[in-house]
């Protein structure tokens, strides 16, 4: 990435962080219902991988922590927020909610709420790409705990035997809901599990976007060049609980503080300042402008958008 690219990505990451924090506020105000899973702390994962891929061209699928992945693929943040508000203008027309963001036009193939559910869907999308002969790849972002589902193993096996163009990105944030990885999982290094299926795999820091990008480039090139699936494990941390109903009683504040010392946005900001490409005032301005954009455009749009019509309750069940 050039310095210009990095500056653009820093702006995006600030948007992703502020967007999610604004969701938190809207949830407290009961503007957003259901379950809400927020992304702060993990921004370098999605951004680092997608900067190495082709957003809007490559297919992306993920779980329920999905707002940022959609926005990174090109979904208008206004349509995501309107979805969280349950409005007709939401990207899933208010029928999906936070866990089911979809934007097929930007090849964001959805957020799914069954842990591990997207694994075989991602492989199927890759099968579709393979049959149609395109140069796209299928990218599946999921957390570490999804790897304890049976379909993880079934999918990795099939992806390998059929040489499918799919990149599995494991955002290892150390916890499956409220259970620590070392308490739930026999093999702590997730990439080793992929290796057992003879799939190329790597593990790296998920907080430093340059490191993520470097590894993701190798992974994306591998998959796009027809060499088959790849598994990339990114070591990361979510600042907030699993969802909004989580008081984080399963981990210490000291552990959280330690991870925040390696905040992905701060790492990139400081690197750009050290390189002379950014100064502190400029960064403050980016944050300020982002907040104004979110408030005056994103939230305003969601607030002012219409509710779906009750008469349309049964629309979209069958074709």
């Amino acid at each position: 990435m050039t310095l210009d690219d990095k500056k653009r990505v820093l702006r995006e990451m600030v948007l992703h962080r502020r967007f999610e924090e604004r969701c938190y506020q809207a949830y407290i105000e009961r503007k957003i219902g259901g379950f809400l899973h927020l992304y702060p702390g993990q921004e370098a994962c999605c951004n680092g991988v997608m900067e190495a891929a082709r957003p809007g061209h490559d297919y992306v699928i993920t779980g329920y922590r999905d707002h940022v992945h959609a926005i990174k693929c090109g979904t208008d943040p206004k349509a995501v927020m309107a979805e969280l508000y349950g409005k007709e203008t939401g990207c899933s027309k208010g029928r999906g909610g936070s866990m089911h963001i979809f934007d097929v036009a930007h090849r964001f193939m959805g957020g799914y709420a069954l842990v591990g559910g997207p694994f075989p869907l991602a492989a199927g999308i890759a099968k579709g790409i393979q049959m149609k002969g395109g140069d796209e790849i299928s990218i599946c972002f999921l957390g570490d705990a999804a790897n304890n589902q049976g379909v993880f193993h079934e999918t990795l096996n099939m992806a390998k035997i059929w040489n499918l163009p799919v990149l599995f990105v494991c955002e290892n944030n150390q916890y499956g809901i409220g259970t620590a990885l070392h308490r739930s999982t026999a093999v702590h290094d997730q990439y080793k599990r992929a290796c057992s299926y003879h799939i190329e795999a790597a593990q790296c820091d998920g907080q430093d976007i340059d490191i993520v990008h470097q590894h993701a480039k190798v992974a994306v090139d591998h998959v796009r060049s027809g060499k088959g699936p790849y598994f990339l494990e990114l070591m990361t941390y979510r600042y907030r609980g699993h969802s909004m109903s989580d008081s984080r009683g399963y981990r210490t504040r000291e552990e959280e503080d330690e991870w925040k010392l390696r905040d992905p946005i701060n790492i990139l900001r400081d690197r750009l300042i050290a390189a002379g490409a950014l100064n502190a005032e400029e960064f403050t301005q980016i944050e300020h402008d982002t907040d104004i954009y979110i408030e005056q455009e994103v939230i305003k749009f969601a607030e002012e958008s219409p509710e779906p019509e009750v008469a349309d309750l049964e629309k979209y069940v069958l074709a």
Binding site: F119, P120, G124, I125, I129
Partner: peptide
Amino acid sequence: GGYTGLGIGASFLG
């Protein structure tokens, strides 16, 4: 579970 999901994913692309 795996191959059924794989078929469904492929169907997303037509």
